[in-house]
Design a protein around this nucleic acid. Structure first.
Lengths: 166, 166
DNA sequence: CACAATTCAATTGTGCACAACTGAATGGCC
DNA sequence: GGCCATTCAGTTGTGCACAATTGAATTGTG
């Protein structure tokens, strides 16, 4: 871990170094994301949920019943991911899916009794996760803010490169 | 509910509901990770690589030929993920897989000429990614350090809960 | 040497992410 | 009213992550 002193200034960054694995922010992010997955796998086992399923439940607990489209907007997921996931939640008895009466294209995702009741048991999850991080609340908040900045910038960059830059 | 003071009585934390989606660090991390995936998808399209394939190539460029096991240690991936991925890289002509002569259990992953040559074209990737983040080098390094701390803490927590606490 | 435990890559099975497409329902516009 | 673009959920196909298992090769121990 020595070498590579970018003296403080940012301008002099030898190109050769950039490919170094440990320099890759993406790698760290990816690793952290998967490490989180591992913790959630353990913590959520009692509830019988996967991590993406848990995120869906969080949205439903917070916002109540939602059409698939809205659910996807909250989670940045499309129907290709949500449709099978919701089927599994339905098979587990946590949600029902009902075609909307006023718009037959839309499917309403509704919590069942059992799905609603699960919230009580889930209240402990975030605290256990926070403890596992070893970060205090302010640190978590600061990191989260940085990550959200990053996401915003990256989405903008993609939009520019694929959609807008024409 | 909530408001139970935290691991050290850290400040008040007025967060009434920890279940709120936007409080979830995991969500931010997950979103950032997928946003990165989107940028890489665009940037790597020219090379014909996916992001995990690119990570494998990075390791090989840095460390030279490696057995599957070592590759997995660098990337935190097991053979269940690597075996099919390496087959695709082999089909693309970027690597060869050869059973080790001195240990027939092991499979050496070797760069082909074409795989080695690709490095030149890949040199531009990290810069394009860095630009897309909108962060300068110091910010990136700071964020990366935080993420690595996080990963270390999370891995330790999982190990404690599943392996060590016996 | 024999044999049990371990190591290693591969395979199987489940679940997620995402692009591309399908097909039905809707809404705007003449 | 009839037509066409759009919206929405679902399906298909590819690729990754990971747990669990398999089977061959190797190592450790007596």
């Amino acid at each position: 871990m020595a070498r590579k002193s970018y003296p403080g200034g940012m301008s002099t960054t030898p190109t050769t170094d950039w490919l170094r694995l440990d320099q890759q922010i993406c790698f760290s992010l990816n690793a952290a994301s998967r490490a989180f997955g591992g913790v959630y796998r353990v913590v959520l086992k009692d509830l019988g949920l996967t991590y993406p399923q848990y995120l869906v439940m969080l949205v439903l607990w917070e916002h109540g019943d939602l059409p698939v489209k809205k659910l996807g907007e909250h989670l940045r997921l499309d129907s290709g991911t949500l449709s099978p996931l919701l089927k599994r939640l339905e098979a587990a008895g946590l949600v029902r899916r009902e075609r909307s009466a006023r718009d037959e294209r839309s499917v309403e995702v509704r919590l069942t009794e059992e799905g609603t009741a699960m919230r009580e048991r889930a209240l402990e999850v975030p605290r256990r996760i926070a403890t596992a991080t070893g970060f205090d609340v302010d640190e978590i908040r600061a990191l989260r803010a940085r990550l959200d900045d990053l996401t915003t910038a990256l989405d903008a960059a993609v939009a520019e490169e694929t959609g807008g830059g024409r």
